[in-house]
């Protein structure tokens, strides 16, 4: 399901669909930055998370972020509606969380491992 479009009725959406898809495709892979530093990220193979791009290179089979995404831990929501992946990153992997911002102004939290690889928090846990 593609992005819903703001305030348009269904028939208007259909007419605008090509333009919508064009606009969405141009921002689907927004640039991510941590502070001022641009980071290269890619979708996890199953599409359920974001991961350091170079983790998916065959030359890096020991990428910690990739390993973590293949060994998700059980977690749950904490007081105040915390992201369940946050506790897994810190308490289980003993890693740190960094916040990245995309060029739309949105943010996503990533777990940064000791080898420098990063994984979005949703790749760390399951219910």
């Amino acid at each position: 399901m593609s992005h819903g479009f703001d305030g348009l009725a269904d028939n208007d959406s259909m007419r605008a669909l090509p333009l919508i898809l064009l606009l969405i495709s141009s921002v689907a892979w927004a640039d991510w930055k941590i502070g001022e530093q641009k980071i290269e990220i890619a979708q996890c193979p199953n599409g359920s998370c974001l991961i350091s791009k170079d983790c998916l290179e065959k030359s890096k089979p020991t990428c910690l972020a990739l390993k973590a995404s293949q060994n998700r831990q059980k977690s749950d929501v904490g007081p105040g509606g915390t992201n369940p992946g946050s506790a897994v990153c810190r308490d289980y992997h003993k890693a740190g969380v960094v916040i990245a911002m995309n060029d739309e102004g949105g943010t996503n939290a990533f777990c940064r491992f000791s080898d420098g690889s990063i994984l979005s928090l949703d790749g760390l846990w399951h219910w």
Partner: peptide
């Protein structure tokens, strides 16, 4: 649907 505003990640802040 209202205008889409940026999605944020509160991490573990409980906010």
């Amino acid at each position: 649907s209202l205008n889409y505003l940026p999605v944020h990640d509160q991490d573990g802040m409980g906010t």
